[in-house]
Amino acid sequence: MRLRFYSFCIAVSSLSLQAQIVSGDDILEKVDRAMNSKTRIVMSTMVIHGRRDIRTVQAQSWQRGTSDAYTEYLAPAREKGTKMLKLNDMLWTYSPSTDRTIMISQHMLRQSVMGSDLSYEDMMEDPHLPNLYSAVTSPDDTVNGRACWVLDLSAKKEDIAYYSRKVWVDKVRYIILREHLFAKSAKLLKTVDITEVMNVQNRWAVKSAVYKDVLKEGKGTEFNVLSIKFDDVLPDHIFTKASLRR
């Protein structure tokens, strides 16, 4: 009931917004506000379609703002206990079998995470899109039956992985439902399709998504959120290198 009320409110407010918002940047700001939170604790799985088999990796992640994240892998058995810590643009990994904390160097960040279509760099990207891109609107479109704004984003600064993006934003929920990532030459490199969303603590969040590196052969990587909790208080010690060995 409460959920429906909220949806209604958002719908009404967005209707009124629809009339007012004309600029892509404004929409992007709204998306950013709708999608980001102070902290979150996410339990997720990643389904990786390899050439010979399908693997599922489960992880729990504690995130503070957009800059810091602490992730612990829970399954499969081989990855269990592997931890990663991201503080701004630095990334460390801890492997229990070696009991060593190793900083992932610049070029290793470009490698894929667990054999998926995502790189460590993709994971570490600053998700505040308005900081990185300016947006202009394209003709509207529908994704999975939902009306969307289509925004063409182009980079505001130089040191950015994807020079331009195209995002499909749900007009009512302000959540991105589809994203295309382009090279500087405007060649399509990666696609993200959000296949399912969920409402948690009165916010819309991604429940399932498929990442695909379009240059590479394969079915892409499925990303599923099992549970998500927003704005819990997370103690500072989580985001220290010492916590990796704990």
Partner: peptide, 16 residues
């Protein structure tokens, strides 16, 4: 053939 590289700023670029 599509070649992908990073610019000096780390931006992905790919062209045929």
């Amino acid at each position: 053939i599509t070649v992908q590289w990073r610019t000096s700023h780390g931006t992905f670029d790919a062209r045929e």
